[in-house]
Nucleic acid binder design. Sequence first.
DNA 1: GTTTTAAGTCAGCCTTGTTGACATTCCAAC
DNA 2: GTTGGAATGTCAACAAGGCTGACTTAAAAC
Lengths: 169, 169
Amino acid sequence: MAEAGVQAQGGEALLYLTDEQLRQGIEAMFFAYRGFTADPDRILQGLSYGRAHHRALHFIHCAPGTTVNNLLNILGVTKQSLNRVLRTLVEDGLVESRVGRADKRERHLFLTPAGDQLERQLSDAQRARMRAAFRQAGPEAVAGFRRVLEAMMDPDMHRQYLRLRENRT
Amino acid sequence: MAEAGVQAQGGEALLYLTDEQLRQGIEAMFFAYRGFTADPDRILQGLSYGRAHHRALHFIHCAPGTTVNNLLNILGVTKQSLNRVLRTLVEDGLVESRVGRADKRERHLFLTPAGDQLERQLSDAQRARMRAAFRQAGPEAVAGFRRVLEAMMDPDMHRQYLRLRENRT
DNA sequence: GTTTTAAGTCAGCCTTGTTGACATTCCAAC
DNA sequence: GTTGGAATGTCAACAAGGCTGACTTAAAAC
């Protein structure tokens, strides 16, 4: 199959598409994702929170006032699953849920000061690792990293990803 | 913190290390990993297997005859957790567990023809996405992708990653 | 006034991770 | 030879975090 891919392009330098290269890419994703989540996981362990809480805090921080439904689409989980996480965060005073003004069915989500503090603690740890990796690899490598990751996303997820960036500019 | 990083290098072009760039990297990892696992997950769903079974099949395929303990180190889970997965795979005739010759305490793991077939089906799907992403991004981007991921791994995981590559050459 | 939508809730299930306790088997050192 | 430790397996219990399905409430939309 890899050979077929190479042949199809008539001898171009497509050796980076061999099955062995792809396998290495797959394994790199596996091991790197472990590192990617290791630091926040360590912090959360013992706080009776998990990765799911971290994700919720991250995206509420990035898009304050987002609705539950919007968060659902970003995270790609069921509302029951998200609700369990969100309820504990609201009960513990890390997230505030305000009834919408225009549409009173909607709840808009915000981080409280305490929520902001935890979010910062978690993302500081995660960013520190990311910064070290970026610095070590250099700007061109980072550009390539981003390019490959974007190409790997499902189209829906890619749209979500771009929308988040737009809302911050 | 990002500003400090930039200043520390005395005005060099370190804008790729700003908090905003790092945040985008974090989100890219999140969304891309979803895509990365989506295809195998779809296949496994309905086979009464999960991602854990896929991981076991992958690494047994890559290192036939590996011991349970070795697999434990690669996967980073407890033996009880792995054992549950391994037991179902052995019961279903996808994995064979042979008592070691030199050390009869050890069990060496191999894929049966049926196991090989499922592994191929899963990794074909995953490689197809990876190949599309690699081709779309180009060889330089792929090199950068790999460089950043390697820098993101924990040192232990990075060692495991390199060892797997050595054993295949 | 009916239907649709956003959100929340309850109950139950599955996968996959965890810990702790314990048995077995075998190698290796003494 | 006996003992200590290592590798494996097994049982039980538990938790996080996914899922589905059914149902309520409130508000918006038609």
